[in-house]
Amino acid sequence: MSVQETLPFGPSASPMPKVYRADHLLVAQMVEAGSKVLDVGCGEGDLLQLLETKGVDGRGIELSREGVNRCVSRGLAVVQGDADTDLVNYPDDAFDYVILSQTLQATRQPKTVLENLLRIGRRAIVSFPNFGYVNMRWQLLINGQMPRTENLPATWYDTPNIHFCTIKDFVLLCGEIDVKMERAVALDRYGRPLRLNAPWWFWNLFGEQGVFLLSRAEKKGEADHRP
């Protein structure tokens, strides 16, 4: 698929306060104003709060009790829960968008989680750290150690991230479970979108994280759904 033609925005977007993270701003731009959004792994609710400024009806799930309580005390509709076990409790089509921001790599069943995202929401926005990032490769290849970066500072023995993938891996997974990639963006270490017309390998090497807007693939013929 061609990513370039679907890329949404130029470098100068809406004038948001600088306190918002670059990847959050990017995600927020992918969400239509006034829609209903579930943020899975919403942390302390920064993205949800940003979305609410756009008139979005936002809900959140967060694993850590501290995160949840912080969100609730910010007036956000957030529940304590686990992406792996709690998404099954949400009905089909409950949201316009389901966001999984920097959380996929911490789930036990990323594929099942991804499928659930697109069952619950009409669209899913997934961002994750790219393990194919040049700095990562360098640390493993030259230093011979598990990579650590500014955004992923944990050591191998205390990281919650158990399912790292590269942008290429993720694209392959999307193909496997019949999701349609509506938009894809790779961000550099400062959270800025990489060159739009770059090829995949370039993104996979120089993107520190990938941000994908996904929707359900067109329904295939009946034959495809037979067991």
Partner: peptide, 21 residues
């Protein structure tokens, strides 16, 4: 409480849920 929250979510309700230590 979690069972209540799951039901509220399934019902499409706007719900916050906090467990206090």
């Amino acid at each position: 409480s979690r069972a209540v929250v799951h039901a509220l979510n399934a019902g499409g309700a706007r719900v916050s849920f906090a467990e206090i230590e």
